[in-house]
Amino acid sequence: MHPMSVNSVIHNKFKDLKGSLNHIIFNFDSLGENFGNQDRNSLKLFELEGKTLNVKSFRVPNIINQIAYRFLRKSKAQRSFEYAKKLQSLDIGTPQPVAYYEFKTLLLFKKSYYISEQLDCDITYRELTTDFDYPNHEGILRAFTRFTYRLHEKQVNFLDHSPGNTLIKKVGEDYEFYLVDLNRMEFGEMNFETRIKNFARLTTHKSMVEVMSDEYAKMGGYDYDRVFNLMWSETEAFQERFYRKKRLKKKLRFWKTNK
């Protein structure tokens, strides 16, 4: 076995907590409490000096990616940390980044962890897709659309703009939005098609697409029909791809178990 090396980068604000953060990461499996969906990556909460920290443990990648992340690409944990700092510099909401850790051997990339402050929110965007009676449903949806427009104006293309990845917090009469799951982003000028395509994964409900199209058209001075037609066709295309993939996975599982 090659010896494992650890690389950690800690945000300036949390430098003095290095010992405690190391303790959390090195004992991740036995400490902390599970949080949310554990399917793909493991999320846990830890209490530290009056703060709740959210630690995301990324799965060990497949062998090709172990080589790629070791030598060619930034890890998901590093990208999450750097993108969070970038969003903060642009005044875009995201939970406070704390640190990231990477475990590597001489030739391969193994585990990585991203630590941020846990942010308590009222809802995520997902609740808007399931509870149409939620107070001020349309108002929140329009505010979310303005938030997305602002992202686009600041040249942020959040590639994982999906229902669970925007936390929503009511502050007085207003709403604040925070992005999570940050490891897939692109930065740069976005054309009309790229902007509207960014809404494709958010909802299956035509009524919600109509509201978002209306608000986005107002914000950008676009023609409503042009926005809606593209947003709805991109939404349908995404759904089609999503279910095709699901059916394929089911077939593969069936084939494997019946071999």
Rank of each mutant, 00 (worst) to 15 (best):
H2I: 05
H2M: 09
P3H: 10
P3L: 04
M4F: 10
V9N: 14
I10P: 06
F14N: 00
F14T: 05
K15Y: 00
K15F: 06
L17Y: 08
L17I: 00
L17K: 12
K18C: 03
N22S: 11
H23S: 15
H23G: 00
I24R: 01
I25R: 03
I25G: 05
I25F: 00
F26C: 07
F28P: 07
D29G: 06
D29M: 09
D29H: 09
S30F: 07
L31S: 08
N37T: 05
D39W: 08
D39Q: 10
N41M: 06
N41A: 09
K44Y: 13
K44H: 05
F46L: 10
E47A: 08
E47K: 14
E49V: 00
L53S: 15
K56Q: 11
R59K: 12
I64D: 04
A68E: 03
L72G: 05
R73E: 12
S75L: 01
K76V: 00
Y83Q: 08
A84G: 04
K85M: 14
Q88W: 12
Q88N: 11
L90A: 07
D91Q: 09
D91H: 13
Q96L: 10
P97K: 13
V98Y: 11
V98I: 13
Y100N: 11
F103W: 02
L106I: 00
L108N: 04
F109G: 15
F109P: 14
K110R: 14
K111A: 01
S112L: 07
Y113N: 10
Y114A: 05
I115H: 12
D122C: 10
T124C: 07
Y125E: 02
E127S: 09
T129H: 01
T130K: 08
F132R: 07
E138R: 09
E138W: 07
I140S: 02
R142C: 13
R142L: 07
T145R: 07
R146E: 15
F147V: 08
T148L: 13
T148S: 15
T148Y: 04
L151W: 13
H152I: 10
N157Q: 14
H161G: 01
T166G: 03
I168M: 08
I168Y: 02
I168E: 10
K169F: 05
V171R: 13
G172Q: 04
E173P: 11
D174F: 08
F177K: 11
V180I: 15
D181N: 12
L182H: 08
M185I: 14
E186N: 10
E186W: 03
E186M: 02
E189Q: 01
F199H: 05
F199S: 01
T203D: 02
T204I: 13
H205A: 03
E210T: 10
V211Q: 01
S213R: 02
S213I: 01
S213V: 00
D214R: 15
A217F: 04
A217E: 08
D225R: 09
L230W: 04
M231T: 00
E234M: 12
E236T: 03
A237G: 14
E240I: 05
F242A: 09
F242V: 04
Y243Q: 10
R244P: 00
K245L: 07
K245W: 06
K249V: 08
K249I: 00
K251P: 03
F254A: 12
W255P: 01
K256W: 11
N258W: 12
K259A: 04
